[in-house]
């Protein structure tokens, strides 16, 4: 059982950071929310809709979310085809796809990269393409699983800027799983601390980092927790 007692909610339009040590269950939580795995018990609501149900129901909900992983997970084809894939899957007309992909590449600062094979991209570029692929479908919910842990500081700040802009301009709700406490402080309004598959504490970012109620949270945010 990777997760227990994981009662957590994210409000529309906010950025929620999920922090916790390795193996705490952050990735599992995001995969549950993305409906890639099913909970053995309990309930996941998306926009007040119960997410449990048949494939079709789950797919229609899943198409309102996007996931970015620590590893870009791009398909072996061009940049354009990767960014366009989610739109193609949704049956978007080609001219619309072209326009949206162009705009999105501009947003991530990679205009002109359309025809490049993704194998030729640097790690930072590849991750920005993964983010572009996630945002181009205009998701209501963006799930980020340690999206910058393999990147240099410059790309980290580029990606954080894009996420922040998407959140403020398009009101995308964001759930960010991260080891990086500073990133959580920089981006999130609310923070949840997860340990051994349990949500220990959740609250406003300031509260969690400055006045945590739980002793374990305090140890973790102080960097005193050995794991």
């Amino acid at each position: 059982m990777a997760l227990r007692n994981a009662s957590l909610s994210v409000n529309k339009g906010e950025i929620l950071a999920i922090i916790g040590p390795s193996g705490a269950g952050k990735t599992t939580l995001l995969r549950l929310v993305n409906l890639l795995i099913q909970p053995t018990s309990g309930l996941i609501l998306f926009n007040d809709v119960n997410t449990s149900g048949d494939d079709k129901h789950q797919r229609s909900l899943r198409r309102q979310m996007s996931l970015v992983l620590q590893y870009p997970a791009l398909f072996d084809t061009t940049v354009f085809n990767n960014v366009a894939l989610g739109l193609k899957i949704r049956g978007c007309p080609e001219t619309v796809i072209k326009e949206k992909v162009d705009n999105m590449l501009a947003v991530v600062g990679l205009s002109g990269f359309e025809k490049r094979m993704v194998k030729t991209l640097s790690g930072g570029e590849a991750q920005r393409i993964a983010l572009a692929r996630a945002l181009v479908t205009e998701p209501k919910l963006l799930l980020l699983d340690e999206p910058t842990s393999n990147l240099d500081p410059k790309n980290v700040s580029i990606i954080e800027d894009i996420v922040r802009a998407a959140n403020t301009k398009s009101q995308v709700t964001v759930v960010l799983a991260t080891h990086n406490l500073n990133q959580a402080k920089r981006l999130a309004q609310r923070v949840a601390f997860i340990l051994d598959g349990e949500i220990v504490e959740e609250g406003a970012s300031k509260e969690i980092f400055e006045q945590p109620k739980d002793e374990r949270t305090a140890t973790y945010v102080d960097g005193r927790m050995i794991y």
Binding site: R62, L69, A73, I89, R133
Partner: peptide, 11 residues
């Protein structure tokens, strides 16, 4: 991970 990404993209 690519197989799962295809599903995550809504396929």
């Amino acid at each position: 991970r690519l197989k799962e990404m295809a599903v995550s993209l809504g396929a």
